[in-house]
Simulated scan of single mutants.
Amino acid sequence: MNFATFDLNLMRVLDALLREQSTVKAAQKLNLSQSAVSSALSRLRHTLDDQLFIRRGNRLVPTDYAQKIALPLREELDRLEALFAQPKSFDPSAEHMDFRIAASDFFAELLMPVLANDMASAAPNIQPKLIDLVPDRYIQTVEQGSSDLALIPDETVGNWAEKEFLFHSAFAVIARRNHPALQKANIKAGELMPLDLFCALRHALFSPEGNSSAMGDAALAKLGRTRKVGMTLQVFSGVCRVVSESDMIALIPWQLGQKWADQMQLDIFVPPMHVPVVKIVGVWHKRSTNNPAHRWVREQIFAEMKKLDAIQPDLSAWPQAGA
């Protein structure tokens, strides 16, 4: 390739195609016609001597070469944008962008409705997009640029990333109101669920991967006990719906239980074993730290999420580690 004659505008087209994997969506993102994007792709294939994308149904699947250059290309474009950006005050109302958030449906309930109101008034052309939290790959989606932010349980991240603590998330037991076994045992909402009853009842388990064990099972194992997992679901909303319409019970984040208790006719109970409180963090790529638009959206999300730390049970009477 002769770089002296290479049209640098093609870099933006290639980046959009790698992100969207669709000529239609890439054209919308770049405010170009689909035919212009298709023409640019043809030029890229000729210049780079690679097919770049293979069509699979409605998707363009990147070749190995395209996947290899995707992240470096994104980083170079970010650097060029920062290089030529003029210092000015950021105006969210004038910004046009998508902001992809990798997170579970916990945040569909406790974050996205607030953003729907706040963004509509302050930044009508910034579009938050909640995308699937891919098991074992949520950090990679940030690193590779397919998401702008991940909202996840705290973990070690590479030196390419930044993270910020948002809130603590305790786990509570939920059951449908007037659950026959709980009524028979005279266990009232808010009380500790007896260990024998907890283990005897069938559980609905949140697991995007379809695993049959989670944190609750590790906590039970320390007591030499197990529970009966009746089914797994990939979303918390499904877990709560199953519990509300059956005799199953479940362990879910406390804040989510509070959100859905009245709507789904659920009672909340103290778990009979110590389940560690989870620290939830926001993770993003360092390349975006000083991007004014990214920082502004980040701050809106983080401010809202940090309010959830106030929605916590009094854990002083809950089972503690080693108890």
Results as ranks from 00 to 15, higher is better:
Ser146Trp: 00
Val134Arg: 07
Ala85Asn: 08
Gly224Gln: 07
Ile249Phe: 12
Ser147Trp: 00
Pro128His: 08
His274Thr: 01
Ala172Asp: 01
Gly216Ala: 08
Leu73Thr: 03
Ala16Trp: 02
Asp309Ser: 15
Ala27Pro: 10
Val278Ser: 13
Ser93Trp: 01
Met248Gly: 02
Ser89Trp: 01
Val277Met: 09
Leu18Cys: 08
Met215Phe: 15
Gln21Phe: 13
Pro128Thr: 08
Gln127Leu: 13
Gly257Phe: 06
Leu17Thr: 01
Leu233Ile: 02
Lys228Ile: 14
Met119Phe: 15
Lys29Gly: 00
Asp196Phe: 09
Ser22Tyr: 04
Ser288Arg: 15
Arg225Lys: 14
Gly216Trp: 00
Gly257Ala: 03
Asp15Cys: 05
Ala150Leu: 03
Gln34Thr: 14
Gly322Gln: 13
Arg56Lys: 13
Asp267Ile: 02
Leu315Pro: 10
Pro153Trp: 11
Arg176Ile: 08
Val13Pro: 01
Ser35Cys: 00
Ser246Phe: 11
Phe99Asn: 01
Ser89Ile: 03
Met248Asp: 10
Met1Pro: 10
Lys88Ser: 14
Ile280Lys: 11
Ser147Asp: 02
His96Trp: 05
Phe53Gln: 03
Ile54Pro: 06
Val275Ser: 02
Gly230Leu: 03
Ser42Phe: 08
Glu76His: 03
Gly57Cys: 10
Asn290His: 15
Asn125Gln: 15
Asn58Lys: 15
Asp136Leu: 08
Met193Asn: 08
Phe167Gly: 06
Ala170Tyr: 07
Gln255Glu: 13
Phe206Ser: 00
Ala66Asp: 02
Gly238Val: 02
Pro135Asn: 04
Met305Thr: 04
Leu233Arg: 14
Gly322Lys: 14
Asn186Gly: 07
Gln127Ala: 12
Lys307Asp: 04
Lys163Leu: 00
Ala102Glu: 02
Arg12Ala: 03
Lys163Asp: 01
Ile249Asp: 05
Met215Tyr: 12
Phe165Val: 03
Ser147Tyr: 01
Leu41Asp: 03
Trp284Phe: 11
Ala36Gly: 11
Asp148Phe: 01
Arg79Lys: 12
Leu60Lys: 04
Val277Trp: 04
Arg241Ser: 14
Val24Ser: 14
Ile131Glu: 00
Pro253Ile: 02
Glu109Asp: 13
Trp260Gly: 00
Gln51Thr: 14
Met1Glu: 08
Gln34Asn: 14
Met193Tyr: 07
Ile101Gly: 00
Asp78Ala: 13
Leu32Ala: 12
Asn58Leu: 13
Pro313Met: 06
Ile174Ser: 04
Lys306Pro: 05
Pro92Thr: 09
Ile311Ser: 13
Asp64Gly: 09
Ile252Gly: 06
Asn2Ile: 09
Val243Glu: 06
Asn291Ile: 12
Ala82Met: 06
Phe302Lys: 13
Phe269Pro: 05
Leu32Pro: 10
Leu256Thr: 06
Val142Asp: 04
Leu60Gln: 03
Met231Pro: 04
Leu18Glu: 00
Phe236Tyr: 12
Leu233Asn: 11
Asp309Ile: 01
Ala82Arg: 11
Leu14Gly: 02
His285Ser: 11
Glu109Gly: 14
Leu14Val: 06
Lys279Pro: 07
His294Phe: 13
Ile280Thr: 11
Lys286Cys: 07
Lys129Trp: 11
Leu18Pro: 04
Leu149Glu: 04
